[in-house]
């Protein structure tokens, strides 16, 4: 465990809390893509199947449970509790465009052909593209609430910190996991455009709106 990894995990946790706080406080999930949140719930479900079979540490187990809970509570908020506020007309990204290639790739490029390993690989590939429905929604409506942009910032920061973690681990432990690294790089690239807008607009006190 290194400082990049722990800060990455905390940033990921903060992002999920921010999203829940936004929904809970405003009693609204306007501007949030339910499809992205379903994909994240699917990511955690398929990745953490080893929760009971492979014990790593108390930290690891607790974080997995918290991530799963956050993901499912968020989906529940969007599709049940506050579904009247859900902006379904703008959440129109076609999930099959993500799911079909991701399922195909997880069968083609993985570490071994076992159900848990293929599902783990699926979760890694899916996570790298899961935010696309959310980014698509923002580009469609042309704006995002400031708290939603904070959520996206910390979600992207988590990924960037994981890249630093992998460089560190490669240097110190000679550890590398090429599937995670390639997917992580792809995922981080998707946030670059958003990071630019975040720094040039949101941090200067302006609302994120696209021309």
């Amino acid at each position: 465990m290194n400082v990049f990894r722990i800060l990455g995990d905390l940033s990921h946790l903060l992002a999920m809390f921010l999203l829940l706080v936004k929904i809970w406080r405003s009693k609204s999930c306007a501007g949030i893509s339910g499809k992205s949140q379903i994909l994240f719930a699917l990511v955690f479900t398929t990745r953490y199947l080893d929760l009971f079979s492979n014990f790593i540490s108390i930290y690891n187990t607790v974080m997995k449970v918290v991530f799963l809970l956050c993901a499912y509570v968020t989906v529940y908020m969007i599709y049940w509790k506050f579904r009247k506020t859900f902006d379904i007309e703008n959440d129109t990204f076609r999930l099959e465009f993500l799911l079909v290639p991701v399922i195909g790739l997880s069968f083609l490029v993985n570490y071994s052909y076992t159900p848990t390993e293929v599902l783990w690989t699926f979760s890694i590939y899916l996570e790298s593209v899961a935010i696309l429905p959310q980014l698509f929604m923002i580009s469609k409506t042309g704006e995002a609430e400031t708290i939603t942009t904070h959520y996206l910032f910390f979600l992207g920061l988590y990924r960037a910190l994981y890249l630093a973690n992998w460089i560190w681990r490669y240097q110190t432990e000679n550890f590398y996991d090429q599937i995670s690294v390639v997917s992580g790089v792809v995922q981080t690239i998707f946030y670059c455009d958003f990071f630019y807008l975040y720094v040039t607009k949101v941090l200067k006190g302006k609302k994120l709106s696209l021309p």
């Binding site: 990894r5 080893d50 492979n54 790593i56 690891n60 994981y162 432990e173 550890f175």
Partner: peptide, 10 residues
């Protein structure tokens, strides 16, 4: 050798 299949990251 490190066992990559352990997947110790979140």
């Amino acid at each position: 050798e490190y066992n990559v299949h352990q997947h110790d990251e979140l």
